[in-house]
Design a binder for these strands. Structure first.
Lengths: 343, 343
DNA sequence: TTGTAAGCGTTATCAC
DNA sequence: GTGATAACGCTTACAA
């Protein structure tokens, strides 16, 4: 026999299908007697409600679709923690789909969610373009986390990345650095605001911004770092697009016998657990990831349950986390003889 | 107006609902003319098939549920890569649910999948007990990855972790180590086989196993490491339960001014990107994670599509990855004056 | 090739 | 309280 249905349970309990439904949704208006009978029958048969039938009949799914750019990046998994916790609290089921860095996958993910009739979508760090975003937002409440431009119809939860980058620059300058270069995140969705923040802050402080197009992975660090050391003798600090990149830079500097932070300071971004690894201990910029996830669910639920219709933009504040890779620059003479005094 | 349905599309295209269905599932037996008409109507209306209705009518979901123990651990995200790639190739949709280290969440996840009518389930590193496992396996093809005991009705994809641990021990011994201690994974599902492999290998080589109950996170390393250094002067090598733990140990040794690998050798497990981080460069044991994911889907599909019924157990081989944390032990005199010669 | 009609397993609206 | 009965949106024989 196939999976038992409500009909089967009803038959066995000697009641009607509707009564079984009421019991399953523990409605108050059902006699204790019948309730017991139904519950027994259900257990005996190993009955399990069919979610599709339920969703179809109920015309709602209580489900929110989460699409994440890259499951490997620890940044995203912590945002998911916040999302799951809040969704649990609000009795919403969440589905997770992984973009895997692939635009096509992300598009398919959105389509899947739409067909699934999710009641809301949360896009975490995805790089969908405006058109795709808006197309999706027409059909369902949509909030982007750590990604995405301003758009009517799309809610945004993010941190002020421009300010975050400025924090890094200001910290380095306050330590006495002037020749600070930025290893930028290339096509990563957050690359632009961080670059912007870096450039603005440098200019504001009367310094010359210098940017090397790099990327957002550890591997991307090597060529950029090698290049920098080749062309520039005087650089004393690097502001890396993210922690992963910073880890790569650290490695490269190590190979080049350049001590951190004695001869080169380094700041990352995201404050993922990578930066916290004792052995690396990278000074970085924190984003409140769990809170971002929580807020994303809250925000999307405002549309679903409270019927909000104007877009909102929630911006959290980044924070400097001081660790061991940023310190005062070496005195000039030390720079000149970098080789001699290296680690 | 609500979401358009097939009915709406049919009306607009001037055909029957069934015809629309045929077009949607691009059946060959529909005239080019009508197909065009239907497609136009669908686009005009922004029609999107309702997955629940489809699943209900079709009596299948083409969906495999993946339940993963901990999204933070990079080990799991790579298994997921393999799962997604293979599922794509085989035209199966995968859903991901996160156990988040929580037994209760895992149970709920299984229940959700069952109600969802998934056609198969993949459990990655979960710690469900036998009873829960079997209960689930009764309803749907089930394969565990890197987790779970032998069970009729449950397929297993794993690596030979006993052999993996032995690999670590043998490598250290071949370098000349004798006083090798194991920091074990406590309640982690893989702790037992790795511990076993360590003990067996040590005994086989005539050495005395020494185990310190530790855990599976970076944070767990500190107390164990402190403890070890307090009680034992002669230890020359540590075999850590996993890379994360090894990273923590590295940090602790660093604080204690013990040079790695000069005065202490260290081997991790999993070969996650943590171990590969240039700055850490931890010698470790590799598990072919992507292949494990791929194989998991293949295995579950054998039951779904080919109707296999006897359980299988697919065991892949682990592999030693030599990096920079394991070398010959210091000569005896160096050990005695560890403090003096430290980094 | 196309249309008709009978499900798929629930929920929801009514009467009783 | 409880039971018919009509949706829900789609697929799938079967007929035409």
């Amino acid at each position: 026999m196939n999976r038992p249905t409500m009909e089967d349970v009803a038959l066995r309990a000697g009641v009607s299908r509707a009564l079984v439904s009421l019991v399953m949704n523990d409605s108050p208006k059902v006699s204790e007697e019948k309730r017991q009978a139904v519950e027994m029958a259900a257990v005996d048969l190993g009955y399990r409600p069919n979610l599709h039938a339920r969703n179809l009949a109920q015309q709602r799914t209580q489900t929110i679709g989460v699409l994440v750019n890259d499951l490997h990046n620890p940044f995203f998994s912590e945002v998911i923690d916040g999302i799951e916790a809040e969704a649990d609290r609000r009795n919403m089921q969440v589905l997770i789909l992984n973009g895997g860095h692939h635009g096509a996958r992300e598009e398919r993910g959105i389509e899947t969610y739409l067909q699934f009739q999710v009641e809301g979508m949360v896009l975490v760090g995805t790089r969908l373009d405006d058109q795709q975003l808006l197309a999706a937002a027409e059909n369902v409440p949509l909030v982007t986390v750590a990604a995405g431009w301003e758009h009517p119809g799309v809610d945004i939860v993010t941190t002020d990345e421009v300010a975050g980058a400025a924090l890094a620059v200001e910290h380095l300058v306050s330590l006495g650095h002037e020749a600070i270069v930025h290893f930028d995140g290339a096509q990563n969705i957050s690359a632009a605001p961080r670059r912007q923040g870096y450039v603005d802050a440098m200019r504001r402080l009367g310094l010359e911004p210098r940017i090397i197009l790099t990327g957002d992975s550890e591997a991307a660090a090597r060529p950029a770092c090698d290049h920098l050391l080749e062309i520039s003798e005087e650089t004393t600090a690097i502001f890396a697009f993210n922690d992963l990149l910073a880890a790569g830079v650290l490695d490269c500097l190590n190979d080049h016998q350049i001590a951190v932070p004695d001869h080169m300071s380094l700041i990352g971004y995201d404050n993922t657990f990578i930066a916290a690894l004792g052995h690396l201990s990278i000074t970085t910029i924190n984003q409140p990831r769990v809170e971002m996830g929580r807020l994303a669910i809250e925000t999307v639920l405002e549309r679903i349950e409270d019927g909000r219709t104007e877009p909102v933009r929630r911006v959290l504040q980044p924070e400097l986390i001081e660790r061991d890779t940023a310190a005062a620059p070496p005195i000039k003479t030390a720079i000149a003889s970098r080789e001699d005094t290296a680690l």
